[in-house]
Design a protein around this nucleic acid. Structure first.
Lengths: 338, 338
DNA sequence: GATTCATGCTAAAAGCTTTTAGCAGAAAAA
DNA sequence: TTTTTCTGCTAAAAGCTTTTAGCATGAATC
């Protein structure tokens, strides 16, 4: 009596098989209206038996809620996006919400196309996420009839936005180094036009005070390498710790230090940022770094859009999620290695 | 006269504004039935004016085609998945097809949940993609009422499957090295239980014949490092080229060679596999490697599922997409650097 | 002048679900 | 006994689109 035919079973089939009307079937399945317990049980048994599953399209058409959301991203090779998207999808699947992935490639035409498709599909909300290069959406998102949540990107003034807490993350790194007795801490980071780079640098400067120095460059290993060479070539006191704006930079830093026969962590301790495992685990020694909790970010964004789509209030403004210090061996700390 | 109200405009609004029936409006918009050119023009103008866009749910409900597909993946941190997914999404958006991203985390329960959600949503097809660890889907996909395309994963005998052509890719690498006059080529690659590793290794052995040696380990930098140390510590002739099973391994290899004061590419040429830019561009010298054309793979998979969902025939079996040699500096070739 | 044909339009049905309004019958209250 | 209340069920509508069948009208054919 399983679903052998080609046609998908509908609630009509359930109703007929259970000998009730479709209204009763629907009521029994959804616990709405008034139904006799015995009938309810029978309907449910039958539904199970013939493998009935309600058609989400019909359901969405009526309820005006599709139980789907869109994720608009401009980050294709994204080591940022995918973990986050996975977090979103993971938390929402349990609420019966599915996620459309829309890669815009930074192309406004594509973004517009995707956006329209999402609206046509009656999605309940949109999560917009960007790499940090350009923080503004490539398409008008502010006057939409559905809620929008921004991640890694800033929306209009009163929008709901999530960021990792770069300031706290940087402080975490600096404090860790200080606790280990380091005093001459240098900061090597990415381009100054990245908001995240500026925030981390400022937090570092605030924490370290006089003598602190933040070197801006780009997000590459090469830059880390180059910066170290510059610093160690010039006269004056050398740093006893380097806080890097990314794990890639840290990797370049570590390589350069080794080339200079500087011992890590004995002579110089190094902290990265990203906890990009494939890099952080492979440096020698393995890198102590800051994890931005991307998956958690995804969870939070997913829950936020879920609440918004139900009309529940969500505090507007920027929510900064705490970063986490991951201790490995590049700072010579208590060896609770991972 | 723009869409100022809160309600989405329906075809009723178009019909009323154009002074025709909804059938005529529909016919005019879709070029079906018989409509006077003048009327057709008017209806379209009106539709444009009030910002009418057909409700995809209603459309799908009727046509039984949702113009959406699902992508089921078990690869969360995927440097493989995301570029591929972006390729799929990119090629399909122009056909009005959207993509559900379902991250299963290798959890069968989650996979089942996602699968059911996809079926409830009447998706027109499913693309299943796996990392190479376990090539079998965590969930029963074979007796589905909709087409399934497999990428990086093997489906049942007569299914439509796409892989990068690992054999040809490996040959590309070996041939390149041979053309540059290298004769003692070593192969260092990942675990033997990865199909891709075995295929590449076999292709390498076939191409190099006697004296060829494939060393299996894992996909890490560390293993590359270790393998090189082993080889250079033991007596006998040393290789003049190393073909690595991944860029990460190649990175470890290059580091180890430098530690041993072996000149790259003068003494030993190195080729990687993946063209994972963040690694391949950062090695010193930059890595010559094999690109698996992940985006193209996504395009092909997307087009295949599109055809299948329309009922058009698609050749069953495994399609292997050619890899591409990316020449950088680690082989000392003609310096058409990238 | 009577029949056929082509044209331009429309009413209604179908697709599947949930919800609203309401109908019988039985039990409780007057 | 008559009226009210409760219970369990159902018909029908609504949600939005596309498609089918068919109705007038005017032109062409016999």
């Amino acid at each position: 009596m399983k679903n052998t035919g080609d046609r998908r079973r509908t609630i009509y089939d359930v109703a007929k098989a259970a000998g009730v009307s479709i209204s009763t079937a629907s009521n029994a399945l959804n616990d709405t209206g008034r139904t006799n317990a015995e009938t309810r049980g029978r309907v449910r048994r039958v539904a199970e038996e013939i493998g009935f599953r309600p058609n989400a399209l019909a359901r969405g058409l009526l309820s005006k809620r599709s139980h789907a959301i869109g994720m608009l991203t401009n980050d294709t090779y994204g080591r940022l996006t995918l973990p986050m998207a996975a977090g979103v999808s993971e938390v929402l699947v349990d609420h019966g919400v599915s996620v459309f992935l829309c890669a815009t490639n930074n192309d406004p035409r594509l973004a517009q196309l995707h956006l329209e498709a999402l609206l046509d599909r009656q999605v309940d909300g949109i999560i917009f996420t960007a790499t940090r290069l350009d923080l503004t959406p490539p398409v008008q998102l502010s006057r939409l009839p559905i809620p929008v949540v921004y991640v890694f990107a800033e929306g209009p003034a009163d929008s709901v936005t999530f960021f990792p807490d770069d300031e706290q993350g940087a402080r975490l790194a600096v404090d860790h180094l200080k606790e280990l007795g380091r005093s001459r801490i240098l900061h090597i980071t990415g381009p100054r036009d990245y908001l995240a780079a500026r925030i981390r640098a400022q937090s570092y400067l605030d924490a370290c005070g006089d003598g602190a120095e933040a070197m801006f460059g780009d997000w590459s290993e090469e830059w880390g390498h180059e910066a170290v060479q510059t610093v160690f070539a010039r006269p004056g006191a050398k740093p006893d710790a380097i806080f890097c704006g990314s794990d890639e930079i840290a990797r370049g830093v570590i390589d350069a230090l080794r080339d200079l026969n500087v011992e890590i962590p004995t002579d110089v301790a190094v902290v990265g940022f990203d906890n990009w495992e494939v890099v952080a685990r492979q440096t020698r020694p393995p890198l102590t770094t800051i994890d931005m909790e991307l998956k958690e970010l995804g969870h939070r964004a997913g829950l936020a859009i879920l609440s918004l789509s139900k009309g529940e209030p969500v505090p507007a403004g920027i929510t900064k999620l705490p970063c986490r210090l991951v201790v490995r061996q590049s700072c010579g700390s208590p060896l609770r290695s991972e």
